[in-house]
Write a protein that binds this DNA or RNA. Structure first.
Lengths: 145, 145
DNA sequence: GCAGGTTACATAGACGTAGATACATCGATG
DNA sequence: CATCGATGTATCTACGTCTATGTAACCTGC
């Protein structure tokens, strides 16, 4: 395939990874900011819209944050009228989350914004690089569950 | 080369990337936590040790954080006795940062810890995957300076 | 040598995050 | 059915981060 194979240290890879991750975060915040929302909030609303009704812990797991963080974010989103909590009848510890009509509409908009931002960000990469990247990322994520 | 080429959407890549980034952050925090320090702090001290004397803005650029963040982290590290500020004679706006003897010793320890953590994290990857990954990450970082 | 723009650092406010803990409820076991 | 461990949420604290702003010092053109 392409390119001279360069010998890299693990620490070097970690540095580059951190740097790229920050670029990604900034890019998404900027693009979604144009829609008046932060990346974490939009991800939560979109996830709830996709898999409602969903419990807080499930949601946290799905988007990769801790339960405590999810709880407080959900709290803010409920206050903003995008999500609603619904106590479970069978298990009164549990809370089912759903999007409100307003939340559903925004979820749709934000999903489009998210996808567009992703396409922009990864546009310099070839299709082959993309699939290679996913492959590698999955290995890394699988390393420690 | 290896593998069936899988068609992936940009949004999918973004999701995997975020997930992997969190795994990385957690891994480093855990390993460096065993040395009693957080990842950002160790990175700052190590960077100062490597390129002292260094000014706050240069340091921020080197580790990929904003100047304000760097300023407050430096403040904490000075309080902890790991770094010291030294006013510049020529330009009195500037501050030169150096490590204290204690900071130098810890920088050495933390560098080793950082490298070890990186090797652990990336050990599931082949040398070729590592260099490919760096190549891709550089493209992403270059996308938006 | 002064005015106005620029640069270097510090500070303040807001947010997302993790971790630890508190609390209520569930379920299994004796 | 009483207890005790497990589970689902919420809350508290500390941290790292950004953006915006403040403040002091520099530099340039006149």
């Amino acid at each position: 395939m392409s390119g001279a194979k360069e010998r890299v240290t693990a620490a070097r890879v970690a540095d580059e990874f951190s740097r790229a991750a920050k670029v990604l975060v900034r890019h998404f915040n900027e693009r979604l900011g144009e829609h008046g929302v932060s990346t974490p909030r939009s991800r939560l609303v979109v996830e709830v819209a996709r898999s409602q009704p969903v419990r807080v812990t499930e949601l946290a797991l799905a988007v990769g944050i801790t339960q405590g963080t999810a709880s407080s974010l959900v709290d803010a989103l409920v206050r903003d009228g995008l999500l609603e909590r619904q106590a479970s009848a069978e298990d009164r510890r549990s809370v089912f989350l759903r999007v409100t009509p307003q939340g559903a509409a925004l979820a749709q908009e934000w999903t489009a914004g998210y996808e567009l931002a992703a396409e922009e960000l990864f546009s310099p990469l070839t299709a082959e690089q993309l699939s290679t990247l996913v492959e590698i990322l999955e290995v890394l994520s699988a390393g420690e569950e």
